[in-house]
Simulated assay, not measured.
Amino acid sequence: MENKSLVDLIRSLVSSNKEIQNLIREQKTEIAEELKLLRKELLENLLKVKEENKAFKIEVQQLKEKLNKVERESKRYKLIIHGFEEGKDEISDLGTCLDIINSKLGVECRFSDVRNFFRLGQPSVQKHRAASLEVVNYFLKKEILKNSKKLKQTQIYINHDRTDQEQAEHKLLYRHLKIAKENNKEAYIRNKVLFINGQSRTPEDLKKEEAMHLLRLEFQRPPPYPTPKRKTSSSDSKNPNHPQKEPLEVEV
């Protein structure tokens, strides 16, 4: 009778064990399916975020281009004039400016040809401020710029009023022009393109070269060395504040 009860107990345990194993398998299957669905959902969300990010970047680039276009249009008729003395007020400064254009450049420019004129920045006793001159048409501006080379032997020079992007590109081009000439290379700038030993480089090319140069420097940088341990000097042993080693006790 006892043997039969023992057999029934074993059978019950085996049956329970099978049920537990089946339950575990079912749970594993459900978890695997849930993980699969979750992974699919995460990938879909990731792709959606990537597409949104891509669209956002395109939109930002388009806005930048529109802003640059608006800024270029606002500066279409403007010139920046450096190096001529400041008078008592802007009216006298404008008269001096027109005299330079008419007499030194040989370009006819009257008060009626000026749309706007003002000095840039705060007054300074150390140097004369540059002046912004806006004329009524683009042809007159081109004539002034064309003849501005006649001022080479003077401290006066006239430039196109550049946008922020044009100013950054201008600085980039002339920085690399200076470096090339310091290395005894034949270099010059024409139509916003730098030529070095016959090879042309646009501002975009120069930006890429600088980025690659910085990347190479980053990889070539040696790892930081650990701080060397301070050596104990003989003066430390005489210092009462310095911890001293206790002498070894030897049993005789």
Rank of each mutant, 00 (worst) to 15 (best):
K64D: 06
L67H: 11
N68C: 03
S74Q: 14
S74G: 06
R76N: 14
K78L: 06
I80M: 10
I81C: 10
K88D: 09
S92A: 06
L94K: 09
D99V: 02
I100M: 03
I101S: 02
I101T: 02
N102S: 05
S103T: 14
K104V: 00
R115E: 15
F117S: 02
F117N: 03
F117H: 10
R119P: 00
L120C: 13
P123K: 02
V125W: 08
Q126E: 15
Q126M: 10
Q126A: 13
Q126H: 11
R129N: 07
A130F: 00
A130S: 14
L133F: 02
L133W: 09
E134W: 04
V136L: 13
N137D: 15
K141A: 02
K142R: 15
I144Y: 08
I144S: 03
L145E: 06
L145K: 05
K150Q: 14
K152C: 07
K152E: 13
Q153G: 05
I156D: 01
N159S: 12
H160T: 14
T163K: 08
T163F: 10
T163M: 05
Q165Y: 04
E166C: 11
E166T: 07
Q167K: 12
A168Q: 12
E169W: 06
H170A: 00
H170M: 01
L172K: 07
Y174C: 06
L177I: 03
K178C: 07
K178N: 14
K181A: 01
E182L: 11
K185S: 04
Y188E: 10
Y188T: 05
R190N: 11
N191I: 08
N191T: 13
K192L: 10
K192R: 14
V193D: 05
